[in-house]
Design a protein around this nucleic acid. Structure first.
Length: 415
DNA sequence: TGGGGTTAT
DNA sequence: ATAACCC
């Protein structure tokens, strides 16, 4: 859970609190088994140590390190398997609930004396006559309180950053690392942004964009700040160009959006080789069984299913292909109820999607399979749809003029 | 690289 | 459906 915001009188003087948990999976494992607490611990998925606790980091283990390299660096390293995300999801939901409850109370809080909690970035001096400073200090107290509550109620530690926008809050949250917090006062914004050694460190500039910028000779934050906007727009498109150039100045007006419940659920598994249809079917059944449990607990119903594969190919960095289709309404209806067999029709659909992507008469070699449920709708979707249809002019216009308009009517009739 | 997720095109 | 981004 990130990016909680203080109620603010106007959008131009925001105070954003970004909370970032320390090595979350490793913390969950240490809570489940306290004997691991003072040992160097890594969380393993396949042959990777995806994250590790700070004991392990002191001994040279890094995130996403090969298991072999990690063991070599640190022979005492204890490894636990983290391929099943269930317990991490459970803890994550607890954090979300806690934060939302705390946020409800925020309005009625009595704010204590105006002093900083935690670090001030760049050791800058505070001006108590500056209203922006004061507001940020109050943000630092709220951050401290949230971290306290997370530790007291759930046993989780984390960092926090407090600043005037999401980008800066996130960047400053990592300045003092583990279990500490830092507030950024406006005067030190340029210091922070120029402390980055490469533009790839700016959240929002990923692998592809960074490569593209490098090809233009842009390597430092200052390079990006001073680069011709016109040429940048030509290379990356106006949207990306304008957004990332603003980011390079530390400017980010993107709003805090409550993420709410997930938009999709998926289960995936990677492996060395899957080369027969029977093998694929077995994997798909496994993934589907777990997914059905999760979707059942969520309570909403997916209306679309997608199958994703990754083909073995010597060196194609990101090659995933997918096929998706609507879930037939009679299958959707059975989804929550345990008594009807929903596996069989779903597996049939998924195998059709599979054969649509993979020519099973030819040899094939897959290294990943994933099943995704998306287009989640609340229950009573037909009734709600009916109300919307009559009460919301814009919606009823678009649905009537759309090519699926009679399909919507069918849904209403069934109900 | 793993096992997820979101948004834009 | 894919490609980019995030962790």
């Amino acid at each position: 859970v990130h990016d909680q915001v203080l109620p603010t009188p106007n959008a131009s003087s925001r105070v954003i609190v970004h909370v970032d948990l320390d090595c979350f999976y490793a913390q969950v494992e240490m809570i489940s088994n306290p004997e691991l607490k003072d040992k160097p611990l890594g969380v393993q998925q396949k042959y990777l140590v995806v994250t590790c606790n700070y004991e392990a980091r002191k001994l040279g283990v890094k995130k996403l390190m090969n298991v072999r390299d990690a063991k070599e660096k640190c022979p005492q390293l204890v490894l636990v398997n983290g391929e099943d995300l269930t317990r991490y999801r459970e803890m994550s939901y607890k954090v979300t609930e806690m934060v939302e409850k705390r946020l409800q109370q925020l309005q009625s809080d009595e704010l204590s004396a105006v002093t900083v909690s935690g670090h001030v970035y760049n050791n800058q001096s505070i001006n108590l006559l500056d209203v922006l400073h004061i507001r940020l200090l109050v943000g630092s107290q709220i951050a401290a309180e949230m971290r306290e509550a997370m530790y007291n109620q759930l046993g989780l530690t984390g960092c926090a950053g407090v600043a005037s926008n999401k980008l800066l809050a996130k960047l400053v949250s990592g300045v003092f690392k583990p279990n500490q917090q830092t507030v950024l006062l406006p005067e030190s914004c340029q210091h922070l942004i120029h402390s980055l050694n490469h533009i790839k460190e700016i959240p929002g500039i990923g692998y592809k964009t960074a490569k593209c910028l490098e090809a233009l000779g842009i390597n430092s934050v200052r390079d990006l700040q001073t680069f011709s906007p016109k040429i940048l727009e030509k290379e990356l498109g106006i949207s990306v160009a304008q957004r990332i150039q603003k980011l390079s100045f530390g400017e980010d007006n993107s709003p805090v959006i409550l993420s709410g419940p997930p938009q999709s659920f998926s289960e995936e598994d990677s492996f060395k080789k899957c080369s027969s249809e029977v093998e694929a079917k077995n994997k798909i059944e496994e993934l589907l069984a777990s997914l059905l449990n999760r979707v059942c607990q969520d309570g909403r119903k997916p209306h679309t299913v997608r199958l994703i594969i990754r083909r073995y190919s010597s060196e194609k960095h990101y090659g995933r292909e997918s096929r998706q289709c609507p879930i037939p309404s009679h299958v959707i209806q059975k989804l929550g109820t345990g008594n009807y067999d929903v596996m069989t029709p779903m597996v049939d659909i998924l195998m059709k999607l599979f054969r649509n992507m993979v020519n099973v008469k030819m040899p094939f070699h897959l290294t990943l399979l994933s099943v995704c449920f998306c287009n989640l709708k609340a229950l009573n979707t037909a009734k709600k749809g009916l109300i919307d249809y009559y009460l919301m002019p814009s919606l009823s216009t678009t649905s009537r003029s759309g090519k699926h308009s009679f399909k919507m009517k069918d849904t209403h009739m069934e109900d």
